[in-house]
């Protein structure tokens, strides 16, 4: 399968999932939506395996890396600032929704920083930057 054919298949799958999910919402049938999504994922995996053209190369990976890096640093800083504002403006009444939201945001920031630190440690070990 060529990359062009795969892109068409991908659009068709997205349309199929969209239609089935909207039908399942109107009929209040969760299982229909779930099965459509699972079938869509399976077809996508099978279609991906049949593609002979190069789909992801080093430039795509570089772009993905840079985009992920910016997305991570931006979202962490924004969430950290938001959590600070939400927590410190509601210190008097800690039962408010905003205060709790601030706490949740701060935990999300901590979690993402922990994942980043773990990944950083893993790759530092992998590429041996600790060794002399």
């Amino acid at each position: 399968m060529s990359l062009k054919a795969f892109k068409i298949v991908r659009i068709l799958i997205a349309m199929f999932i969209g239609v089935i999910v909207s039908v399942s919402v109107t009929t209040a049938n969760m299982y229909l939506a779930l099965s459509a999504i699972i079938i869509g994922i399976i077809i996508m995996i099978l279609a991906k395996r049949r593609v002979k053209d190069v789909m992801v190369d080093e430039m795509m990976k570089t772009i993905a890396y840079k985009a992920a890096s910016i997305a991570y640093s931006t979202s962490v800083v924004v969430l950290a600032l938001l959590s600070l504002i939400l927590v410190f403006t509601n210190l008097d009444d800690q039962n408010t929704f905003n205060y709790r939201l601030g706490i949740v945001f701060s935990y999300i920031v901590l979690f993402s920083m922990a994942v980043y630190s773990f990944a950083h440690y893993f790759y530092r070990k992998k590429y041996g930057t600790d060794e002399e």
Binding site: D53, V54, E58, M60
Partner: peptide, 13 residues
């Protein structure tokens, strides 16, 4: 692109 195993976009860039 096919010869070196990358996408056409990479060769363009």
């Amino acid at each position: 692109a096919k010869e070196v195993g990358v996408t056409r976009q990479t060769i363009i860039a």
